[in-house]
Simulated assay, not measured.
Amino acid sequence: MTIHELKLKFLQIRDYLTDDVNELLDFTKKEYVQNKISIIEYRDLVRELEKLGAKFPDIFINNSLIH
């Protein structure tokens, strides 16, 4: 799945279009948790969104089990 396809899926589900990479990152996480996208798609989308400036909230980083 590409970022463009992700935006279209976001539009279909949320009824509005966004270019906010953090909002798209949250949406990507939700899609993965709900088994709507594979781990490979999730990883690739997160990588692309991070390149565009998306960041995980500090609460997830500070409370991570992986340090």
Rank of each mutant, 00 (worst) to 15 (best):
D26F: 09
V21D: 00
N63F: 14
T28Q: 03
I61N: 05
I13E: 08
L49D: 01
Q12E: 11
I61E: 07
N35D: 08
A54F: 03
L49V: 12
D20F: 15
R14G: 02
L6G: 00
D44R: 15
E50P: 14
I40A: 09
I39Q: 10
D20M: 10
D44P: 14
K9N: 04
D26M: 10
E50F: 13
Y16L: 05
N35A: 09
F56D: 07
L49R: 01
E23A: 02
I3N: 02
R14T: 08
F56G: 05
L6N: 01
Y16S: 03
K55H: 09
I61A: 06
G53P: 04
D20R: 12
E48P: 14
L49M: 05
E50M: 10
K51G: 11
Q34N: 12
D20H: 13
K7R: 07
L11K: 07
K30P: 00
T2L: 09
L25C: 04
N63L: 13
D58Q: 14
E41G: 00
L8T: 08
L65C: 06
Q12T: 08
E5H: 10
Y16F: 09
N35S: 10
E50C: 15
R47D: 14
V21S: 00
E23L: 01
I59S: 14
V33Y: 14
L52D: 09
L65D: 04
D44S: 12
N22W: 10
Y16T: 03
I40C: 10
L17I: 15
I3Y: 02
K7P: 04
I66A: 05
D20E: 04
E48W: 13
D58G: 13
P57N: 07
Q12H: 09
S64P: 01
L52T: 07
K30T: 07
L17F: 13
K29M: 11
K36E: 06
R43S: 12
Y32C: 01
L24N: 01
E48R: 15
Q34A: 10
I39N: 08
H4R: 14
K30H: 08
H67V: 14
K7W: 05
L6D: 00
F10G: 01
A54V: 12
K9W: 04
N62A: 12
E50H: 15
I40D: 06
L52S: 05
V46I: 10
L45N: 00
N63I: 09
Y32H: 06
D15Q: 11
L52W: 10
I61S: 08
R47M: 14
S64I: 08
D15W: 15
I61G: 05
D58L: 14
L49Q: 01
L11W: 07
K55Q: 07
D26S: 13
Q12D: 07
A54T: 09
F56L: 03
V21W: 02
V21E: 00
N63M: 11
F10K: 00
K36P: 04
Q34K: 15
D19Y: 14
I40E: 05
K9G: 00
D15R: 09
F56P: 02
M1H: 01
L25N: 02
E5M: 03
L17Y: 12
F10W: 07
L25F: 04
D44E: 11
L8H: 06
N22C: 06
S38T: 11
M1F: 04
R14A: 07
K9T: 03
K30A: 02
I61W: 06
E41H: 04
V46T: 06
T18M: 06
D58P: 09
E48T: 15
Q12G: 02
